[in-house]
């Protein structure tokens, strides 16, 4: 029963009144999608910023050093006062040497780990091993660099007496260790997404686990596995600290892995920590090197995306 002097409010009335009051105020909500779009566009701006920065400064560099010299000269001696030469080749070779060694380490070990986790390991083993691999993947690269210089290099020196203190082998191996968890976990994802029924089909024919894995699971997951390897190698190409600490600063285009090298990333670090003045040719050279590095990794990433999309497995 409503009481005499008390005004009656229903919930609906209250809502209507609130609504009316709101209408008079400036409607903040209409701005929200625009503000959120702005944050999203910022990531696009970042890419544009990277591309334009690199292109702009690289053009200034090519104003001073001919693009033909950059690609054809086989020497990289930027610091020579009288006879500076800027041929990117030695830096690219240094980078590829490290990446190649990393691939030799990471592809077999990463794939074997993925196979073990996806096909052989018990649920319990998986629960223990996977977080440990995550830790391995989360270790800062400077720590790996320290590990390469103070642990791996001395061990390798005992095996190969002619090994220099700075070389391609030690950072190559350690970069390989660094990207192994990436190969393992992405490949494992690809293999685990092959449905169980397909495995059962193979087992029911009397196939062993190995035969099922090699002949059925790996071919079925091949696009995912390829993508994981390409992504991991792209990471290896852009890796900086390990090669700066343990690789040295001697650009050379030979394929010897025991001598000191310089990678593209290590060169950028060398210039950044040195005292090359602003707007000198050396200053602009790091953008040209950065551009080369960026294009390498961009094409690899696009390639990885292309194979995942193009060969998306349908089971």
């Amino acid at each position: 029963m409503p009481r005499g002097n008390q005004k009656e409010y229903s919930v609906q009335q209250m809502i209507t009144e609130k609504r009316l009051k709101k209408k008079n105020h400036f409607n903040f909500e209409k701005l929200i999608p625009g503000l959120l779009l702005l944050t999203a566009v910022l990531s696009v701006l970042t890419t544009i910023g990277i591309v334009f920065t690199l292109i702009f400064e690289t053009f200034i560099f090519f104003d001073r050093v001919s693009i033909i010299e950059f690609f054809t000269n086989k020497k990289w001696y930027p610091f020579s006062a009288t006879d500076a030469s800027f041929g990117i080749m030695p830096l690219v070779v240094g980078t590829l040497k490290v990446t190649g060694i990393a691939a030799v380490v990471a592809v077999p070990i990463g794939l074997a780990t993925a196979i073990y986790l996806s096909e052989y390991a018990s649920e319990k083993a998986r629960r223990i091993i996977k977080p440990i691999l995550e830790v391995l993947a989360g270790i800062p690269t400077i720590v790996y660099g320290f590990f390469a210089l103070t642990f791996v290099t001395p061990i390798l020196k005992q095996l190969i007496p002619s090994l220099e203190t700075f070389n391609a082998l030690s950072p190559g191996i350690v970069v390989g260790i660094m990207i192994t968890p990436m190969v393992a976990s992405l490949s494992e994802d690809a293999m685990s997404s092959v449905p169980r029924s397909i495995r059962e089909g193979a087992f029911a024919l009397g196939a062993t686990k190995l035969e099922t894995t090699i002949k059925v699971i790996l071919p079925a997951a091949v696009s995912g596995i390829t993508a994981s390897v390409v992504l991991a190698l792209s990471r290896a190409i852009g890796e900086t600290m390990i090669v700066s600490v343990a690789g040295g600063s001697t650009p050379n285009a030979s394929f010897d892995v025991t001598s000191s090298i310089q990678t593209m990333t290590a060169y950028i670090v060398q210039v950044s920590t040195g005292d090359a003045g602003y707007q000198t040719t050396i200053y602009y050279s790091i953008y040209a090197v950065g551009m080369t590095l960026f294009l390498f990794t961009l094409f690899m990433n696009l390639f990885a995306q292309f194979i995942t999309r193009k060969f998306k497995e349908e089971y």
Binding site: I198, E200, A202, A204, G206, V216, P219, A220
Partner: peptide
């Protein structure tokens, strides 16, 4: 050995499960 057994005894499953080949 299960492999021996399954070489003698074939199986057809509820849902068709051809290999992606």
């Amino acid at each position: 050995g299960v492999e021996d057994l399954r070489t003698q005894v074939g199986m057809v499953f509820q849902k068709p499960n051809p290999f992606p080949k």
